[in-house]
Amino acid sequence: MTVYVLCFALFLVGVYGVLTKRDLIKIILSTGIMGYSANLFLILFAYKKGAVYPILSKGEEIKAMVDPLPQALVLTSIVIELGITAMLVALAIKLYEKYKTFDITKIRRLSG
């Protein structure tokens, strides 16, 4: 259970960054931290004590294996996170070109 709590604490560090930092780059990094901890939480759920990874090999008896379902879902989720990071970075670059700053307290006007 302590592992779950620590994983949630990592998520809250990401929330803290999003709420208090004034720098766009640090906000992007904070969303990354939140993504990491969400993925890790799902995999923590899948772990079974004394089990091995779910890959079969010839001539070996099937022992207890960990849950393959969350692993399969997280695998694609990690890749999607990369796409999201790239999109956030693109938005940040556009904002920088317009306002010449990454400080979000100075980005106030919304005009096209």
Binding site: L10, Y36, L40, I43, Y47, V52, Y53, V66, Q71, V74
Partner: peptide
Amino acid sequence: IGIVGLGVSISFLFLQAPDL
């Protein structure tokens, strides 16, 4: 921030998820 990402990677190894 790589500390977090690579830490997650090592945790996946401990949790028996080598592909991840």
